[in-house]
Design a binder for these strands. Structure first.
Lengths: 222, 222
DNA sequence: CCACCACCTTTACAAAGTAAGTCTAGGATA
DNA sequence: TATCCTAGACTTACTTTGTAAAGGTGGTGG
């Protein structure tokens, strides 16, 4: 086997890392395991991420939060979806439609790797892709009639809602600990009444998004 | 010193763990360090958390998300805040006011230990305190005129917003990596125009909360 | 032809989680 | 009172992890 040049790249490393996270959980992502998956010694990874695992985490977060990738990747040539999403790339949609498209895309991107969500926290959202999104949101909310600090507030609210909704779903779906969820014994009548066996998260997200968008436009208008 | 009975308890352990997390970060919370802080050998902790560190994390999350504690703890006798919060314990406030009180309390609770936020993700929100809050929220939204699935959706949206807003703030405030945030070079005019040196997160949260509450009530009314 | 560089391997170590067993004080029992 | 039990804490030791340090290997430009 060739001693060097095993064809490693940051892209391949990150992709493989995400595969491990998705399949076995974040805690099982170790340098050695990642090396094995890449057919390489663990230390080889350090050549591409000299600052170690934290830097790898940075790259993972940057990858998973980059909505651009999922939308503009050429691999996506299978009967592209509805016209609304198509026109989004042209920037010809009204402000609220653009924000809806982004929200759904971002949610999907985060949900695809919900095992890596913990890496988001305490990591600064200043990647190029994030800034591009922020710029677009500011423009959209100005178009919506907001101005000044209200624009930034609105963008923050939108981002908060989407991120929060994903985390809400991830928490609800996370594997239960062996202890029973026995607590529907009469002390929580409303909770018990609604059942909530398996909520339709997609629908819930969409409706919540409408509520948030409407609320933001109405309440933050200067 | 007495060989056994060093006065350990789950409460003391969790409190000390949170102190370490707040002061040095989650990654520096190790069993040995925690043992040192508690004046005890690391393995002593396993007597109270036989399932290991994960179980300790569970307890930490339960502790930090329990809004009840911060509100009803007897240590909090220093000139209690405004009357609105006082009446909240009596349950005599209108539904939206009750939700506002909860939202601010919950936000404050999470923000107080933002270093432990990562533990929230992928941990099921089925603690007693969480269920009690959920029950209260369902009741409130029914009082607001919602019914059926809309109640659960509204509660989910509210929780998503609060959690998301805390994470948004935590991400914004997290220490920057040595690389410069140089990206205000003309490609992001709106972002550059708004500056955003240090946003008023508290005010932003309050205004966003109003928008969300209004939007939820208006848009999810059956 | 040689020096250098990008890329990967080898070797090694310190720190972390925790399994397994031991010790001690205080209470229950006879 | 003598004995035993047990909760709670300590000791030891093993495995896994991250990563520092140095070495090899092939290609590339001078």
């Amino acid at each position: 086997m060739s001693r060097n040049n095993a064809g490693l790249s940051t892209e391949r490393i990150v992709t493989e890392a995400l595969r491990i996270i998705d399949g076995q959980g974040l805690s099982r992502l170790t340098m050695r395991r990642l090396g094995d998956a890449l057919q390489v010694e663990a230390m080889a990874i350090y050549h591409h991420f000299p600052l170690g695992k934290e830097q790898l985490f940075d790259a993972i977060v940057e990858h998973m939060t980059d909505v651009t990738r999922s939308r503009s990747s050429p691999e996506d040539d299978e009967a592209t979806s509805d016209a609304a999403e198509e026109a989004a790339q042209e920037g010809e949609l009204p402000w609220d439609e653009r924000l809806r498209v982004w929200a759904h895309d971002y949610r999907a991107a985060l949900l695809r790797h919900s095992g890596a969500l913990a890496l988001l926290i305490n990591r600064r959202p200043d990647t190029t892709a994030a800034l591009r999104s922020l710029e677009a949101h500011y423009a959209a909310f100005q178009e919506a009639g907001l101005s000044g600090a209200a624009v930034a507030h609105a963008a923050a609210v939108l981002d908060s809602y989407v991120t929060g909704a994903v985390i809400h779903q991830a928490r609800a779906e996370s594997a239960a600990t062996p202890e029973a969820p026995q607590v529907l014994d009469g002390r929580y009548p409303h909770v018990a009444a609604l059942g909530e066996i398996e909520p339709d998260h997609a629908r819930r997200f969409s409706e919540g998004l409408e509520a948030v968008l409407a609320g933001v436009r109405a309440h933050l208008a200067s």
